[in-house]
Amino acid sequence: MKKAILYINQFFGQIGGEEKAGMEPVIHEGHVGPAMQFAKEINAEITHTIICGDNFMGSNTEEAVSRIMEMLEGKEIDLFLAGPAFQAGRYGVACGTICKAVKEKLGIPVVTSMNVENPGVEMFKKEMYVLKGGHSAAKMRADVKAMAKVANKILAGEEVGSAEEYGYFARGIRRQVWREDGIPASERMIDMLVKKLNGQPFQTELPIPKIDRVPIAPAIKELGKARIALLNTGGIVPVDNPDRIQSASATRWGRYDVSNSDDLKGGEYKTIHAGFDPAAADADPDVITPIDALRKLEQEGVYGSLHPYFYTTVGTGTTEAEAQRMAKEIIPYLQGDHVDGVIMVST
């Protein structure tokens, strides 16, 4: 029987939540967490489960990868699985990172799964099969099934069909196929052109991916006179969270007056972010919103002045569309106070 190994994070590895996100990688013989379901779906034996904390992988990437590579050394592996990671950003990036390393260094096929909102999709979809996964672990069963479908094709030595048919993110690889309808390109092209000229809808055969890049804003000319605003997605709020910003998948933001403050103190401010261990930021909110350092730098004349408010939302699970809207709502306040530049601290 063919052999497969699964990579999961501390949460799905049943080690713990955010307080364990710093854990170093470990390897277990047999099945932990989602491995049990994979074992039912997949035509291979899952010999080992690797578990690694998302923060350890995110902050000590090289070390995490090299340790996992050592763990894999000498093992018989036909396929490497990671996730599914759903909408969990750090987990998705971790899955992509380790899959990429396994694929490149060991030449073993890899399969993972993420939700479209996961930043790992853009980073890794071209390099591997990333199945289109659900938002949350409620979709575990469906996501594992989808991964298994691709995995079983690979294990059988057969070719995996198109992105559309198998439900993975298109990898930008073009392949020649015989069309069932047998209509040549010249006719299809003229047909499209006629439709276009008549203002009718048509489906291009070569979609150009849209990359949303923003032109670089010109630098501040005189930093010594510049007004600077501080934003964060780390969820720093007054302890009573007056705007009731959600701890995950935020749709709300707040702005808090710090015109009379030289330092954010634990007990007065805290983080409501559900995506990491809050202990450090609760004890000293300056580790996310560095008001103390900004005041000192203001006194020293490094820059002109600090905008009287800092702005907060929570970045975990928050969709791009919501983030975009919240930024658009914040911008008028920055314009109204003639802010020259912005610092965004994200966690």
């Binding site: 949303d212 670089i216 997605t233 911008i331 920055l334 965004m344």
Partner: peptide, 12 residues
């Protein structure tokens, strides 16, 4: 968010 802010012309 960073992109929207930069789109509005602020260096960020």
């Amino acid at each position: 968010m960073v992109k929207e802010i930069e789109r509005a012309g602020f260096p960020v």
